[in-house]
């Protein structure tokens, strides 16, 4: 459904997207995972036609985006990070407007609006102006606007920022339903749990590059059986290096004064590691062990935690 070939984009001297290539299948939920500034939104903006890439090609539904932009826009839905609708209009008026703009007939729209409002639990409040809605309700409408014309491709740019768990689950339900109906979904997030729960495949991005791409299981294999251990305390970089050099199977992912992140089989080596710290007279403030998951993959790939 989507094919990106050596896509790059630079703003002034910053390379926001750096030579990324990938393919996404029809009906797939594909996640772009990365911290702020990783290049996720820039990639989505290029796919939606808002930004022109400096180099590289984008194909949507086997059509070259550059020469078929208008056709592609008809089969594409976009849900931006911000809530982009008219707050003084009601949910129904907004959905009618956005649907008509996408070329959906009035009759079809009425039916769709009803069914989406029912799915999102907003039926009965469709005539209230959106300014009276809660944040979560607005998020749901923001998503439905992107879905109302039943697009073949849906681009979701962090659609769950600042919402309660109930709304998040409702949004996930809608996304999964759209995917099962054949809509390809491109989902950007910096939330590991969301990516794990929702996406069929995930691309981990940082500094404009795709660091790893695959299913959750494939990505976890990058860290293997080892756990990710994070130790904070009062020690210097030299101390940290000296201690970890004693453990041959340990891989140091990040080392700075007072904090070390390493990959090691915790169940076997953890007591010895801590003992070594104590033996050197180092006081430890905090120790955490992470089982192999997306977070540990991200740590392994970037040497830092996603929220840093």
């Amino acid at each position: 459904m989507i094919k990106l070939e050596h896509l790059s984009k630079t703003f002034d001297s910053i390379r926001a997207v750096d030579d990324i290539s990938l393919e996404i299948e029809k009906g797939e939920i594909f996640g772009f995972l990365g911290p702020n500034g990783a290049g996720k939104t820039t990639t989505i903006s290029m796919i939606s036609g808002l930004l022109k890439p400096d180099s590289g090609k984008i194909y949507v539904d086997s059509m070259d985006l550059e020469s078929n932009l208008r056709k592609i826009k008809k089969i594409m839905g976009v849900v931006p990070q911000d809530m982009a609708f008219y707050e003084e209009l009601s949910a129904k008026e907004n959905l009618l407007f956005w649907g008509r703009l996408q070329g959906v007939s009035r009759k079809n729209l009425e039916d769709r609006i009803r069914s989406y409002l029912e799915l999102t639990g907003l039926l009965g409040r469709e005539n209230e102006p959106l300014k009276k809605y809660s944040g979560g309700m607005k998020r749901r409408i923001n998503l439905v606007i992107g879905l109302i014309h039943q697009p073949k491709l849906l681009l979701l740019d962090e659609p769950t920022i600042g919402i309660d768990i109930q709304t998040k689950l409702n949004i996930f339900k809608l996304i999964k339903q759209a995917s099962s109906n054949g809509t390809t979904i491109l989902y950007t997030t910096h939330n590991l749990m969301e990516a794990e729960e929702l996406c069929h495949r995930i691309a981990i991005m940082d500094n404009g590059k795709i660091l790893a791409l695959g299913t959750l299981e494939e990505l976890i294999q990058i860290v293997g059986e080892k756990d990710i251990i994070i130790i904070s305390g009062k020690f210097s970089v030299d101390h940290g290096r000296k201690i970890t050099s004693l453990f041959k199977d340990a891989t140091v992912l990040s080392l700075k004064e007072g904090k070390i992140i390493l990959s090691l089989e915790a169940s076997k080596k953890m007591p010895l590691l801590l003992e070594e710290f104590f033996r050197q007279g180092i006081s430890i403030d905090d120790v955490s062990i992470k089982q192999p998951n997306l977070e540990s993959v991200f740590l392994k790939l970037t040497g830092r935690e996603l929220r840093e």
Partner: peptide
């Protein structure tokens, strides 16, 4: 400012 123009710009409009 509201983002509706941006949203319209990714529609066939």
């Amino acid at each position: 400012e509201m983002g509706t123009l941006r949203r319209m710009n990714v529609s066939p409009l």
